[in-house]
Amino acid sequence: MWEDMQEASKRLNGDGGGKKQNRLWRPLYAWLGIEHVSSRPPHVQSSRLPSSTCWRPVDDLSCVTIVLLKLIERLICAELQAHYLQRSVALHLHSSQRTSSTMNGNAEGKPLNEETVPLRTGPPTREELLVHYPPKFTWNQLKTFVNSGDLGLLKRDRKLQKRYDEWVIGIVAEYGSVVKYLMNHRLRWGQPDTLSLLTSELQDDRFVEAPNSDGTNRPTDGEPPAYFSWETPSKYLSIIQNDWPYSVPSNIEHTLIWTKVPIYHPDLAAPSIKARIDQDGLWGFTGLDSPPPSPSTLPACLPALAEWGITLEKMVKSETPTPEKAVLIRRAGSEVHRFVKNRWLESEWETAWFVNPPRLQSVPGLAHIHVFARHK
């Protein structure tokens, strides 16, 4: 059949059909970026032929096939380019809208200033944080503090800390203690956080369980896990936005993972590193496009901590661990790290997580994890 089609093409074009054919197809070849194609055999020499000539038998059907394939290739490339352009524009608009809404005004479009955002008591709103407690640290500084080895460098705005201390007095008077307030009111075990004034962009579908039959939000009876892991049942967890966040940039979410089961456990933390973890805590990073800042860069960040009187000499940290102990430390935090990676997808979020050591825990009677999360 192929031979019949070639013979028909020869009869149609006559002698010199290849030249005529090339003259007809050459402009389309050039537009599509196809090398010049000739029907002359490779042993024929001609100084007039370009060096890029591709020697192979060609007829009209072959030319049509080549052109169609090239057109399909161009259409696919154009479709992919349009898709990525649309995606880039959408991400840019989303980022611009978030920045505009947080920096230029509230949801009603009103400018954010001390007149439009009066100070209240109790947990602050996002607008109050922006106007009255602007961030003292950059995202890079926060990551540096976390990776420095002394989690005590992470601070709340001093004025906000004073407001928190005053609020705690009322909470203790009403509930008896902060732990009782958390257990009996604030923490919604196995349910979404609906009480926070600071909302999150991340919608967590793991919390879909209904409350207990008696209307409480406490976990049902049953044998709890021995320690916190990446697959801890949600009824033992309450993930909320920190009502009293540290001084973080406006595009950083400060989330708390409260858990009914312990985070530190002998099955995870070897006895040889227990004293170290008790002093330093645990920390890690997910979703970063580059390694976290080296602790050696900390001196450049210390001016941001001047109002707290922090100096290198006042830091509380252990010596650099040996390779063997570094492996044990990573293992001690492996379950937390995996949990954070699963919840804050690394393609969409970058995080710095940490578990404060006992010396820094504001609520030592209840285990919890801090997560700083930035949406990419």
Rank of each mutant, 00 (worst) to 15 (best):
T199S: 15
S101D: 08
D204F: 07
R276T: 07
R188P: 02
A304Y: 04
S290K: 14
V208I: 11
L182P: 05
T232P: 05
V336R: 04
A173C: 12
D4F: 11
H43E: 14
A226P: 03
R206F: 13
T116K: 11
R188M: 15
Q45A: 09
A300W: 02
P245H: 01
S229P: 00
E115L: 14
A373N: 12
T65Q: 11
L298C: 01
V44F: 11
T99W: 10
H92F: 03
N113P: 10
H368N: 14
V172W: 12
E324C: 02
N104M: 04
W31A: 12
P364K: 11
M103I: 01
I273E: 04
N242I: 00
K317S: 13
I257P: 01
T125L: 13
V327D: 10
Y84M: 12
S238H: 01
Q161D: 12
S52E: 14
P42H: 11
R87P: 00
T53S: 13
L151A: 06
L312D: 03
S272I: 07
P364R: 10
P41R: 10
I171Q: 15
M1I: 02
G170P: 06
S234A: 12
S47Q: 08
T232D: 11
P364G: 12
A269T: 03
P303F: 13
L187M: 08
V178I: 15
Y227K: 06
S290P: 02
R26H: 08
S213L: 15
K325W: 01
G149V: 06
L49T: 00
P293I: 10
S362D: 08
T194I: 15
S318E: 14
R206H: 10
D15W: 04
A300G: 01
A82G: 09
K260V: 00
E127S: 10
P134D: 08
D280W: 05
A78N: 12
I257G: 00
V336N: 09
H83R: 15
E319V: 03
N242V: 00
K180Q: 15
P245S: 00
L298I: 00
E201T: 03
I171E: 14
T232K: 14
N104G: 00
A107W: 01
Q45W: 06
G365R: 11
N217P: 01
